[in-house]
Amino acid sequence: MSMPFYVAPEQIMKDRADYARKGIARGKALIAIQYSAGIAIVAENPSNTLRKISEIYDRIAFAGVGKYNEFDQLRVSGVRAADLKGYQYSRIDVDARSLANQYAQILGQIFTHEMKPLEVEILVAEVADEASKDQLFHIFYDGTVLDERKFCVLGGDSDAIYSRMKESPLLAHLDTALLADVVQLCRNALSGPDRQLPIEECEIAILNRSGDRRAFTRLDDTEVNALVQG
């Protein structure tokens, strides 16, 4: 009978983290950012049918990067959890913080107990009546949750994109920024210095602060083109 080799827990965790990070780094990035009328989410996504951004509940959106089948499974679980909670209690009891915690539990559990971690990073965003109460939860492959302010970047090359975003003077007055301006900013940051990201490859959705029950809107091709042309 052969004995399994001893591997230090630190090594196991490091290997899993490297594996997940490599998977995520291969995928394309996305940015969520606050603006005057709510929250905009801009993703680099060549597909017009396999979505990275979607609606979870009235004021809550989901976005994922990495392995599509894995974050899509998480997305559907989120919709189920939110609809169940809204049915059993009330629609106003469904909140992003609770969803983010549940996602973190699942990702953390899979990271420590399964053979393979999920190769995803996800965002749970909630728009509130006031910009100061908007929430952007950035959840990592190992269950780490970050509560981000103003904007957040997920996916491959996110450090470089983050620093490009940081340089923008627009960040100082997002409360008056127009949708076209923040979309332009995100598109430039996603593109980088060596290329211009084609607008057809931008998936854009917004959470509108207008007070309508369902705040989530996905912009269609004509709306996206109108934004770019001003």
């Binding site: 499974q73 679980s77 189920r80 996602y103 699942i106």
Partner: peptide, 11 residues
């Protein structure tokens, strides 16, 4: 959060 395995979810 209900988390179902593929092939065993309520669609």
């Amino acid at each position: 959060m209900p988390f179902f395995t593929p092939g065993d979810h309520p669609g």
